[in-house]
Amino acid sequence: MKKEAIVFDRVTKTFPKATKPSVNETSLVIEQGSFVTILGASGSGKTTLLKMVNRIIEPTSGTISLFGKNIREMPATELRRSIGYVIQQVGLFPHMTIEQNIATVPNILGWDRRKISERVDYLMDLVHLPPSYKTRYPRQLSGGQQQRVGIARAMAGDPAVLLMDEPFGAIDAITRTKLQDDFLEIQKKLGKTILFVTHDVDEAFKLGDRIVVMNEGSIQQYDTPLNLVTRPANEFVRRLIQADDLFQRLQLMKAEDHMLAWTEADAAAGTENVPRVRGQDSLRTVLQKLLQHDAPYVAVVNGEEKPVGKVTLEQLKTANSG
């Protein structure tokens, strides 16, 4: 059992003058080191849920704890210094250089100058920004670069938890894909606990270990991407993620989980004309290769290009139905 990082206990938020709650009696446990995406349409309460964690929004009732401590029992400023926060509009301070922006939290925490400078260098490298950008102002950077700074700034105090509110929402599709890939790399290295709000289904599936699907202030389902597709809890989830979509499902299954053993007979048959995939590749890639090459099966190869298994069209059918 992993440690519980964030726990929502029957949390409700009703904004003044609103007729119904934005977040309704919601309970949720986020494990340490997990990357959880919160998926929902606008008005679903997903951003409200996120912003209650660092007390930008205070819940009407219920409690939220961070590593076992009720967040209301510590001063809001102190709490926020221990949580990284990234928003869609980035919100860099326009009158400060990139270096000063990134150093915001370390400065508040009173780190010494050398430690701050080393930290800035490390973070700039982590988010793939050239060191020469340190002395530039935010205005001189592109939207994607600004959000890289935003992520570096959020991580500057080495927080255990990161809250991200549609951080890539305002960025063009190509840059967004690159940012998502880079950010996954960063997460692999650092293993933070991340809450990530998005309205983009693909993004939620690509980034999240687990996904919270929200609608009208309630959690519809909290599960792994594969389970959401194969076992949607209700009609809403099914429609939102198009769980009936064959490709969507195949996309989430890995070749190595559904392959048959590689036999002597297969080896004898030769592998020249057999298309190859890696164990990590999705069944969607398998299907694509099968159709492209008009082959009876694909070989699943390991890092040394040695076949370790095969996937036939039959396997795809079984995987899809089961």
Partner: peptide, 8 residues
């Protein structure tokens, strides 16, 4: 909001 979120 970002400034407040940083703990200022």
């Amino acid at each position: 909001e970002a400034a407040a979120g940083m703990g200022m």
